[in-house]
């Protein structure tokens, strides 16, 4: 089964790096959608079928924290696995996100292997 992935990060550089990483990782990739903040991500979720959300936290307009909050109270979106890829290193914040339902966490700077392994772990592929 190929996964449709929604990539959320305000940095065009990180989105480009992640796109390359996902394409070379040993994971079945279907469609890849991108968004520059949480609000744009919710717009994509409304329109497209998404199997996995990979999101940054510190973004303008709507942060990754707010995106996670919005997704986990939504009847349809709360089942979508979320992986957070961020510079945030506070265990207080990460534990809080995991309690809310975030399935995976990778800290920046990351390697392609770390991303591939986290997706495999979260999706059980």
């Amino acid at each position: 089964m190929a996964y449709n992935v929604l990539l959320v990060d305000d940095s065009v550089t990180v989105r480009a790096v992640m796109t390359k990483t996902l394409k070379i990782a040993q994971i079945p990739l279907g469609e890849l959608f991108t968004a520059g903040n949480g609000k744009e991500a919710l717009d994509v979720l409304k329109e497209k079928w998404v199997d996995l959300v990979i999101t940054d936290l510190n973004m303008p307009e709507m942060t990754g924290f707010e995106l996670v909050d919005a997704m986990f109270v939504h009847e349809q979106y709360k089942a979508i696995p979320v992986i957070v890829v961020t510079t945030e290193g506070s265990t207080t914040r990460i534990d809080d996100l995991k309690k809310k339902g975030v399935r995976g966490y990778v800290r920046k700077p990351f390697t392609p292997e770390q991303i591939g392994e986290m997706i495999t772990q979260v999706m059980g592929a």
Binding site: T87, S90, K108
Partner: peptide, 12 residues
Amino acid sequence: EMLNMVCGNFLT
């Protein structure tokens, strides 16, 4: 983005 990464890692 490099500054963002340095800042996050510095704070921890």
